[in-house]
């Protein structure tokens, strides 16, 4: 019973309280670029979750046999191989979507979430908890992506997943699309606002005000 509870905690902690994107500043690189519409955000979330779960499983299974001096390179190569598989699969079955995602699927390989999880958790834990932990991080990342993606698509073009939700003004409706939402700055503003909202609801996440008391490596 206690073991199941522990697993449940590992799974749900990264959703909001330990969210990898808003609290640990990991993996934002790709999080913002793919959120102009909900379907790219969803594809990206699923791809990342699959990669991080598989990589965590493999690395925790063979972790004890990797010599410490080359372990980063080995981990990166395992992750990159999985990313290549996902990328080829997307190109084979969802060609149009993979064109729109451009290089960002390949960039999952350098996503800090994946390497961060494998480095800090999977290496020293058995496969099952590692995969659950990775799944939690993947879902936390997906949650942020889907929230920002649906916000940008809804207000930027009045659609969700390509379906018209708000009737557009030039087609006789009332909604005038905010084209700023489709440009880069809005992603920064939305994520900033999201961080603010989360940190106001859970004040223990807020950063201390002294400056420059933080050491460099502390937040990573």
């Amino acid at each position: 019973m206690a073991a199941t509870e522990g697993l449940w905690n590992t799974l749900t902690a990264p959703l909001i309280r330990q969210n990898p994107v808003t609290l640990q500043i990991l993996g934002i690189c790709s999080a913002l670029a793919v959120t102009t519409s909900l379907d790219t955000a969803l594809t990206m979330s699923i791809s990342l979750t699959v990669v991080v779960v598989l990589a965590a499983g493999v690395i925790s299974a063979i972790g004890r046999h990797i010599p410490a001096s080359i372990r980063l390179i080995v981990q990166i190569i395992i992750i990159a191989s999985m990313v290549i598989v996902i990328d080829q699969a997307l190109q084979a079955w969802f060609f149009e979507l993979s064109q729109r995602l451009s290089v960002f699927v390949s960039l999952i390989a350098t996503n800090c979430i994946v390497l961060g999880r494998t480095e800090s958790f999977s290496r020293s834990n058995p496969p099952l908890p590692s995969m659950v932990d990775a799944l939690g991080s993947g879902l936390g990342y997906s949650l942020v992506l889907v929230a920002i993606g649906s916000c940008r698509e809804l207000f930027g073009s009045g659609t969700l997943l390509g379906l018209q939700v708000f009737p557009l003004a030039d087609q006789g409706g009332w909604f005038t699309p905010l084209s700023l939402m489709l440009l880069a700055p809005s992603a920064f503003f939305l994520l900033g606002g999201l961080v603010w909202a989360i940190r106001s609801l859970w004040p223990e996440q807020a950063e201390a005000s002294e400056f420059p008391a933080h050491d460099l490596g502390e937040e990573r």
Binding site: T22, S186, G192, V195, I198, R199, E207
Partner: peptide
């Protein structure tokens, strides 16, 4: 550094807003 920001916006939050303005 010495600006009096709301607690939740400090650090990461304000950095995103700044980056958004620079991006504009």
């Amino acid at each position: 550094a010495y600006a009096d920001l709301p607690a939740g916006l400090r650090g990461l939050g304000i950095a995103f807003v700044l980056a958004g303005m620079m991006s504009l």
